[in-house]
């Protein structure tokens, strides 16, 4: 008797099992097909800022003269350009700690992030404070006509 029931039940349960599985898979697939477009929609497009080297405008250059530093956008990134005595250097202005925009303290010749008091030297290295990595450096080219060009290659 028992044998009989198992032989009858088994195909029935496994068929039901199979159908349940099928149903489960199709529900998951349906959810995925709904979620995928939304996820893609939320992910922003890559930045399409004008890539390549950036010329400082006249305004920016005069700000650099006056304040010893200026912050400019270079291919979508904030870059701080600093005048130190005879040379000009440029770094990512985004603090490596939590991403505040850094500033330059001419008196102490350090690049300073006021958010959590991070300090960098003029090679971008961390002097003190919580930033875990140095600021990446940008290349600065002075052109014969006095213009300044910042580009992404490392200096």
């Amino acid at each position: 008797m028992e044998e009989h029931t198992t032989t009858v039940d088994k195909p029935a349960t496994s068929r039901r099992h199979f159908i349940d599985l099928l149903l489960g898979v199709s529900v998951v697939a349906w959810l995925a097909s709904v979620a995928y477009p939304i996820i893609r929609y939320l992910k922003p497009l890559p930045q399409t800022g004008s890539g390549g080297p950036t010329h400082l405008t006249r305004d920016e250059a005069s700000k650099l003269e006056q304040k010893q530093f200026v912050i400019v956008p270079v291919s979508g990134q904030r870059v701080i350009v600093v005048n130190v005595q005879d040379r000009t250097c440029a770094f990512s202005a985004k603090c490596t700690h939590e991403g505040c925009t850094v500033t330059y303290l001419p008196g102490q010749s350090v690049i300073w992030c006021p958010c959590h008091d991070g300090r960098f030297d003029l090679n971008g290295r961390v002097l003190s404070g919580p930033p875990p990595r140095p600021l990446s450096q940008y290349a600065v080219n002075r052109q014969p006509d006095g213009g300044i060009v910042i580009s992404e290659e490392r200096a």
Partner: peptide, 29 residues
Amino acid sequence: DPLAPAYPGIKPEWYFLWEYQLLKEFPPH
């Protein structure tokens, strides 16, 4: 102004201050 430097005294609202301070207490690595 995304191109202006940050300045001292930037603080979140008071109920986030403890997280803000904790962030400061962690060394870089």
